[in-house]
C-alpha cells in the first residue's frame, strides 16, 4: 500500500519536481556567475565589505523560489485529486484516510526539501568559493525562514485546495498569507534566527489542519 501511494504521488509530481530542481540549479548558477563577475569587475575587498560589513545578501535571487516551489508542488499534487473529485478513489482505498494523507504529505514534503535543499547547497558552495566559511555558514539561518515559508505555503495550498467551503478557504488563505509574509520580513543575515526555533512549530498546526480539511472534504461528499 505504502509503495503504491508513493508511486502515485511520484507520478503526479515528477515533472514539476524536475522543473523545481532545474530552477534551483539555474538560480544557483546565476548567483555563482554574478558574484564571480562582481569579484572580477569590482575590487574583491569591496565585495567582501558588502557581504561581511553591510550584510548584503548576495543570494537574494533565490529568496522566493522555495515559496514558489511549495505552491507548485502542492498544486501539482492535489489539483488532480480535486478536479473531478478524484480523491474519492484514494479515500476508498483499504487504508486509513489520515495514514494515506500523511504518506501523500511526506512524499510532497520530501521532494520539496530535496529541491530547496539543492538550492541551499548550491548557495553554500558558491559562497564558500568566494568568501570565508563563516559567510557561507551564515546563509543557512538566513535561508531557513524562506524554506519554512515554502513549507507553510505547501501546507497552506494543500489545505485551501482540500477545503470545500469558500469562506473558510479565503480565511485560511489569508492566515497562511500572513504567516508566509512574516517569514520574508527583514534584511541581512539571520534576521529571524532568534525566532526560528519557535516559528518552526507552525508546521505542526499547519499539518494537523490538512487532516482536518481532508476530513471535511470527505464528509462534504468528497
Amino acid at each position: 500500500m505504502y509503495r503504491s501511494i508513493i508511486l502515485k504521488e511520484w507520478l503526479k509530481l515528477r515533472w514539476f519536481f524536475a522543473a523545481c530542481v532545474l530552477a534551483h540549479l539555474a538560480l544557483c548558477l546565476r548567483i555563482f556567475f554574478v558574484i564571480g563577475r562582481q569579484m572580477r569587475e569590482e575590487h574583491a575587498e569591496m565585495v567582501w565589505y558588502q557581504a561581511i560589513h553591510i550584510h548584503t545578501v548576495m543570494y537574494q535571487d533565490i529568496r522566493f523560489l522555495p515559496l514558489f516551489t511549495g505552491l507548485l508542488l502542492a498544486a501539482a499534487q492535489f489539483m488532480p485529486e480535486i478536479l473531478g473529485r478524484r480523491m474519492r478513489i484514494a479515500l476508498h482505498l483499504p487504508t486509513g484516510r489520515d495514514r494515506m494523507l500523511l504518506l501523500c504529505l511526506l512524499a510532497g514534503i520530501a521532494l520539496y526539501l530535496i529541491a530547496t535543499g539543492l538550492g541551499v547547497v548550491g548557495v553554500f558552495v558558491t559562497l564558500r568559493r568566494f568568501f570565508p566559511l563563516e559567510v557561507a555558514f551564515s546563509a543557512l539561518p538566513t535561508m531557513a525562514p524562506w524554506l519554512l515559508a515554502g513549507l507553510l505555503a505547501y501546507l497552506g495550498m494543500t489545505i485551501v485546495l482540500l477545503e470545500g467551503e469558500t469562506r473558510r478557504r479565503v480565511f485560511l488563505a489569508l492566515v497562511f498569507g500572513v504567516l508566509v509574509t512574516m517569514l520574508f520580513h527583514g534584511n541581512g543575515y539571520g534576521w529571524l534566527t532568534p525566532a526560528l526555533p519557535y516559528l518552526v512549530w507552525l508546521v505542526v498546526p499547519a499539518m494537523l489542519s490538512v487532516f482536518e480539511s481532508a476530513r471535511r472534504f470527505q464528509q462534504r461528499g468528497a
Partner: peptide, 24 residues
C-alpha cells in the same frame, strides 16, 4: 466501487494503474 463518470487517475498509464492498485 465504480464512481460516477468512471473516475480514474488520468496521469497514469495502463501499466501504472495496475501497479498502483495491485499494491493496494
Amino acid at each position: 466501487l465504480l464512481h460516477e463518470g468512471h473516475l480514474a487517475y488520468e496521469f497514469m498509464t495502463i501499466a501504472q494503474t495496475e501497479q498502483f492498485f495491485s499494491g493496494c
